[in-house]
Design a binder for these strands. Structure first.
Length: 480
RNA sequence: GUGGGAGUAGCUCAGCUGGUAGAGCGUCGGUCUGUGGCACCGAAUGUCGCGGGUUCAAAUCCCGUCUCCCACCCCA
């Protein structure tokens, strides 16, 4: 199969083919309909954005930004006279004199500040940053708050592929963004309660979605990671770090490194021998500030009210910088070591960080590839035949052919899936092909049928046949 | 970036200790020119991932390289 110069999909990318694409569409349609029942509208942001947007939103120190993004410089606009000038001069074998250039287009330093030639763009590694950018750009704080948006589409990260991990992968995500109006009479306790309801609703929506898909072995884990303040997460991280220093020599190399780079992630370690050590570490729940504590308690209460089953996991931390307070993760079966199908959390302040108004936010991202994988492992592969024809037209003879063409046109106009073979086939051959293609019926059109004005419809499953006029046939098929 | 496994027909794979390739499934054709699913018969497709080495002789042994898979890191 492998001759040398064949093109192949580049590492970490793949073709999604029928019948799998039927399942993909089913998943996406289910998401759309469930999300709509919760009042979410679809947003389709661009697939690439300014590199700086992701650096600021996701965090410049995260792996995603520091080493996994596909980043490239924008080449000059095709009709850019400056680029044309330089290209023409170079191809004529001339050097470009700075004086000539500046005489034509103005000083280089002025051009540089105007066009920022160093700006680069990146393929999106996630979509929350884009949604926040769009919220700001389109002044969505003017809309009735909160603004509820979902997206479906490909993301790009340059990682080593493995089971459930690809360089181009698909996410289904949703965000709830709410402008915070300055209001001196604001009741802080009420605000926290409201946020908790927003969180619980979002999670409920997720669980409804997974439920509809009949995804087996779904488990929701939640946690609160507080907010960035000395009396909250910052204080906890400092304490955690000092505790970790004490047991440093018992930890593996990765965990030792993380003590410096991201102490919270040590809690996430999968190493067997580190588990008893981790169990003795201080828990963040004991170090949350009063507000964060109250909010976390309220989220749990609201989930219970909605009948959403959850498991608390004090070791659940999120990798992206912008998360705070409520965080959650959903795992499923059959995924190998990448068993998280969904991750999310609250990110108040992110919109402001990107230059927008004070805004609260919470969202999630579902790994669609993993979701599909889990469904397939569980044997859930419905509607694998949606693209196969309902009726295969077996025709023989020139007169029958003309009739077949007309029948195909009329039946398709009624939305019926028709396969019209381009060559004349013996009826035996035609029925064989019809069966192979997964058709349910064969419409037999030969000289007899044309002469009688009544067509033969054969049910392939049981071999029965009936004679029908064209209107009768249309009527019969539409009623299926 | 690090570690492990694997690359032979469209797919799944066999090919032992070296003698220039096979099976099943699938595809196509025929038995079967007005009736398929079954059965039987037949056909096509491989520079055995690529490059080099050892040898009279390499899919097989050695070296290199590429790709895929799994795991670590990280994340969906």
């Amino acid at each position: 199969m492998t001759s040398k110069a064949k093109f192949q999909a580049i590492r970490g990318t793949r073709d999604l083919l029928p019948p799998d694409t039927e399942l993909w569409n089913h998943v996406e349609q289910t998401a759309r309909s469930v999300f709509a029942t919760f009042g979410f509208g679809e947003i389709r942001p661009p697939i690439f954005e300014s590199t700086d947007l992701f650096a600021r939103a996701v965090g410049g120190e995260t792996d995603i930004v520091s080493k996994e993004m596909y980043t490239f410089a924008e080449s000059p606009e095709p009709d850019d006279p400056k680029a044309a000038f330089v290209t023409k001069a170079l191809s004529a074998g001339l050097g470009v004199e700075l004086d000539d250039f500046e005489k034509a287009f103005g000083s280089l330093s002025a051009l540089a500040t105007r066009h920022s030639p160093l700006a680069t763009v990146s393929l999106r590694p996630e979509a929350t940053a884009s949604v926040c950018r769009a919220y700001i750009e389109h002044n969505m704080q003017q809309l009735p708050q909160p603004v509820k948006l979902y997206y479906i589409g490909p993301m790009f990260r340059r990682e080593r592929p493995q089971k459930g991990r690809y360089r181009q992968f698909y996410q289904i995500g949703a965000e709830v963004l709410e402008n915070v109006k300055p209001d001196p009479t604001r009741d802080a306790a009420k605000e926290l309660a409201k946020d908790a309801i927003t969180d619980a609703e979002l999670i409920q929506m997720l669980m409804t979605f997974f439920d509809k898909l009949k995804l087996p072995g779904v488990q929701l884990e939640i946690n609160s990671i507080g907010h960035a303040a000395d009396n909250c997460r910052r204080g906890y991280v400092a304490k955690l770090k000092s505790e970790l220093e004490k047991v440093k020599d018992k930890l593996g190399a990765d965990s030792q490194r993380r003590i410096e780079t991201n102490p919270l992630r040590v809690l996430d370690s999968k190493l067997e021998h580190e588990q008893p050590i981790i169990a003795t570490l201080p828990k963040i729940a004991d170090h949350l500030c009063d507000d964060c504590k109250a909010q976390y308690a309220a989220v749990k209460r609201e989930l219970e009210l909605r009948g959403v089953l959850y498991k608390e996991n004090w070791r659940l931390v999120r990798g992206l910088d912008y998360y705070m307070r409520t965080t959650f993760e959903i795992t499923a079966q059959g995924l190998g070591s990448q068993n998280a199908v969904c991750g999310g959390g609250r990110y108040d302040g992110l919109v402001e960080l990107l230059g927008g108004p004070p805004t609260k936010g919470i969202g999630f991202a579902i790994g669609e590839d993993r979701l599909i994988l889990s469904l397939q492992e569980a044997g859930v592969s419905p509607l694998a035949t949606r693209h196969s024809p309902l009726v295969y037209i077996a025709w023989m003879g020139a007169n029958a052919y003309a009739t077949a063409v007309r029948a195909a046109k009329d039946l398709r106009a009624a939305g019926i899936r028709i396969e019209l073979p381009p060559v004349e086939q013996k009826f035996g051959k035609a029925l064989e092909r019809a069966t192979k293609l997964g058709a349910q019926f064969a419409l037999i059109l030969g000289d007899n049928e044309v002469a009688e004005g009544a067509w033969t419809l054969k049910t392939l499953a049981d071999g029965t046949q009936q004679k029908l006029t064209e209107p009768q046939l249309l009527d019969f098929l539409k009623k299926l």
